[in-house]
Simulated scan of single mutants.
Amino acid sequence: MPSEPVVPRPAATVLLVRDAPAAPPGRTPLQVFLQRRVPEMAFASSMTVFPGGGVAAADRAALPSWAGPDPSWWAERLGCDADLAGAFVQAAVRETFEECGVLLAAPELPADVERYRADLVARQRTLAEMLTETGLVLRADLLRPWARWVTPPAVPRRYDTVFFVALVPEGQEADAHTTEAVEATWWHPSEALEHWQRGEIELMAPTVRTLQEIAEHPDSASVLAAADDRVVQPVTPVVRRDGEKVVVVLPGDPDFAIDIERIAPGGSA
């Protein structure tokens, strides 16, 4: 008798966007920050991804300060309860800070902000504790909901991931100072897709689709405006056999079908 599918773990990922200081010929100004994960990762090893990770228990804690739409607003946009919606937002802010040093908070970041980043990574402090100690305010208003993706039922390690969009705050820089990635840099969305098409980087189906979507926009302002109008509904890719190939397809989109060997080494989607 087949076993029951694994319950997806809540997770959050953030499309950090900016306008390139000088876009090369043939490229729009829009850029997005991508990381290539280390081969040792249990999930999406060696994949090129947006910053993000699983919701931690501490992400459900009440925060001392919160600016912008409250959890009930996010719950309505994301189609979940307020407790989970608030945890999605907290995880998005925490993971973005841990993985690339961008902190969606105000006012001015303290001089020793990297010490707090190291403590969060080591789980020696929680986001709530950091905000309390520094007097910072979480800026939920800097995030926009973009999509919600659920790993297919046949996959043993599953996630229910909310994709957010955020403009890098003025005066902050995204970096590659994380042990979870071997490299991280800014990409023009069309450029990343071209490298994927040539087999030079590996992307999961949600990353491919998201890059295709944002590549339609010329700059960060256009992406943020588009996010405000999006209806976020869970999307679960389907893994099926197509002749001798196993492909990943999207419900309602017959034109999206990717050979699984192109996106997931070892056949894990």
Rank of each mutant, 00 (worst) to 15 (best):
V6L: 15
L15G: 04
V17K: 03
G26I: 02
R27Y: 01
P29T: 04
P29S: 08
P29E: 15
Q35D: 06
Q35G: 04
V38T: 14
P39G: 08
M41D: 11
A42M: 14
F43C: 02
M47D: 00
G53Q: 00
A56V: 03
D59M: 00
A67D: 03
S72D: 15
S72G: 06
A75R: 02
L78S: 04
A85R: 05
G86Q: 05
A87V: 00
T96G: 11
F97D: 02
E98Y: 09
A105H: 09
A105I: 04
V121N: 02
R123Y: 00
R125G: 02
L127H: 00
L127V: 01
E133W: 03
E133C: 02
L138C: 13
L138Y: 01
R139Q: 09
A140L: 02
P145G: 00
R148Q: 06
W149M: 05
V155E: 10
F164N: 07
A166C: 01
E170L: 13
E170V: 14
G171W: 06
D175G: 15
A176W: 14
E180R: 12
A184T: 08
T185V: 09
S190F: 01
E194C: 00
Q197E: 09
E200N: 12
E200M: 08
E202T: 14
L203Q: 09
L203R: 03
T207P: 13
V208N: 01
V208T: 12
R209C: 15
Q212D: 04
H217E: 01
P218A: 08
A221D: 15
A227S: 09
P234Q: 10
V235N: 04
P237R: 12
V238L: 12
V249A: 12
L250D: 00
P254C: 11
F256H: 09
R262L: 11
R262Q: 11
